[in-house]
């Protein structure tokens, strides 16, 4: 491949990125400018609602639940915020009343740590076992020319890539 074509591919890539950027700018630019009368408190209330679940529905966030019990909880959140309570105190109070199932975010404490242990253990186990397996599979190269001895049409495509590499300069790997 000539340097011109390489540049062409790069230009298209950069153009694609710029297009993506424009899209995100459009998104970020259209973000809300409205400031409610009591912006911080209402935003806090909504944030608290999103951290709680309906005590009666299944996995339904408080902020999108229309049940009477949820409307009461939403009212209580605003009343307590107005009275000076901290968000954590409000969430803790609901957790005490309805149990931990109303917490959208799993507390990292007690028995719940077993789940985080499972997550960490799974990732570490897959990583270690996988790494060990890869290491065991790995042997010094026996290839004569360092080129993939593949068959079928993939070989042709890979050769095109190799030609591209050579055109770009430097030895083939």
């Amino acid at each position: 491949m000539t340097a011109t074509r390489t540049r062409g591919v790069v230009v298209v890539g950069v153009a694609g990125t710029i297009a993506l950027a424009v899209l995100v700018v459009a998104v970020l630019g259209s973000r809300g400018e409205r400031v409610p009368t009591d912006a911080s408190q209402e935003q806090q209330a909504l944030a608290i609602e999103r951290q709680l679940l309906c005590p009666q529905c299944t996995n339904k966030r408080l902020d999108v639940c229309e049940l009477a019990i949820c409307n009461d909880m939403k009212r209580v959140i605003r009343e307590r915020l107005a009275a000076g309570a901290l968000p954590d105190e409000i969430i803790f109070a609901f957790s005490n009343t309805y149990g931990p199932r109303v917490l959208a975010e799993l507390p990292r404490e007690g028995f719940n740590l077993a789940l985080f242990g499972w997550v960490g253990g799974s990732i570490v186990a897959v990583g270690l076992l996988g790494g060990w397996f890869l290491y065991r599979l790995r042997r010094p190269s026996r290839l004569d020319d360092g080129r993939a001895s593949v068959d079928g049409d993939d070989a042709w495509i890979d050769e095109q890539l190799a030609r591209h590499e050579r055109a770009a300069g430097g030895p083939e790997g």
Binding site: L53, P100, R101, L103, A104, L115, S122
Partner: peptide, 29 residues
């Protein structure tokens, strides 16, 4: 690894209720 993590999160409420008698929700966060 994603399979194991999602499976663990999906089943954890069952184990929580089984061993702790506590109903919890493992949600999007």
């Amino acid at each position: 690894a994603i399979t194991l993590v999602v499976l663990g999160g999906t089943l954890f409420p069952v184990f929580s209720e089984l061993f702790q008698d506590v109903r919890i929700t493992v949600g999007p966060p």
